[in-house]
Computed example of a mutant assay.
Amino acid sequence: MTTKLCKDCKHVKLPHPLANFAYGHVVAFPMCAHPTATVDPVYGHTVEKCEMARMGPNCGPDAKLFEQAPPYEPPKLVPLEPVEPIRTGFLERIFGRWF
């Protein structure tokens, strides 16, 4: 049997990579975005961290709500067209076009 990790789940909502640098300590956690997860009645977003969902009755230690996410595919790189360099004089490069 394979180990079911929240980071591999289809419903996990990972924080932005720079969110942890906001105040110098961890301020963002991965959240469970499963439709049956706990939802804030005022704002409508999920309020259950993944680790709390795995300890509670919703998902549990056996990961009842786990669905495998599709494999990550890196974006395809588009080659850039070569650009002809612009020849400028020495003084124009230092002082700009007003010289």
Results as ranks from 00 to 15, higher is better:
residue 1 M to W: 12
residue 2 T to H: 03
residue 5 L to M: 02
residue 5 L to A: 12
residue 7 K to F: 08
residue 8 D to V: 00
residue 10 K to T: 05
residue 10 K to Q: 08
residue 16 H to Q: 13
residue 16 H to R: 03
residue 18 L to I: 11
residue 19 A to H: 02
residue 20 N to T: 09
residue 21 F to E: 01
residue 21 F to L: 11
residue 21 F to H: 13
residue 23 Y to D: 09
residue 24 G to Q: 09
residue 24 G to F: 15
residue 26 V to W: 06
residue 26 V to T: 06
residue 27 V to S: 14
residue 29 F to E: 00
residue 29 F to N: 03
residue 32 C to L: 05
residue 32 C to P: 02
residue 32 C to H: 01
residue 33 A to D: 10
residue 35 P to Y: 07
residue 35 P to T: 11
residue 35 P to Q: 01
residue 36 T to Q: 06
residue 36 T to N: 04
residue 36 T to A: 14
residue 36 T to V: 15
residue 37 A to K: 01
residue 39 V to D: 00
residue 40 D to I: 08
residue 41 P to W: 01
residue 42 V to N: 09
residue 42 V to L: 09
residue 42 V to Q: 04
residue 45 H to R: 14
residue 46 T to S: 15
residue 48 E to C: 13
residue 48 E to T: 05
residue 49 K to V: 12
residue 51 E to R: 06
residue 53 A to V: 12
residue 53 A to Q: 04
residue 58 N to Q: 06
residue 59 C to L: 02
residue 59 C to H: 00
residue 62 D to Q: 01
residue 62 D to N: 08
residue 63 A to H: 06
residue 63 A to N: 01
residue 64 K to D: 00
residue 64 K to I: 15
residue 65 L to D: 01
residue 66 F to K: 03
residue 66 F to S: 00
residue 67 E to W: 11
residue 68 Q to D: 04
residue 68 Q to P: 08
residue 68 Q to W: 10
residue 68 Q to C: 12
residue 69 A to W: 06
residue 70 P to N: 03
residue 71 P to Q: 03
residue 72 Y to V: 14
residue 72 Y to L: 07
residue 72 Y to S: 07
residue 73 E to W: 04
residue 73 E to D: 15
residue 75 P to Q: 00
residue 75 P to R: 02
residue 77 L to K: 02
residue 78 V to R: 05
residue 78 V to C: 14
residue 78 V to W: 15
residue 78 V to D: 08
residue 80 L to D: 09
residue 80 L to N: 03
residue 81 E to K: 12
residue 82 P to I: 02
residue 84 E to F: 15
residue 86 I to A: 06
residue 88 T to S: 04
residue 89 G to F: 13
residue 89 G to H: 05
residue 90 F to V: 07
residue 91 L to K: 07
residue 92 E to R: 02
residue 94 I to C: 13
residue 95 F to G: 00
residue 95 F to H: 02
residue 95 F to L: 15
residue 96 G to P: 10
residue 96 G to H: 07
residue 97 R to H: 14
residue 98 W to Q: 11
residue 98 W to P: 12
residue 98 W to G: 05
residue 99 F to I: 07
residue 99 F to W: 12
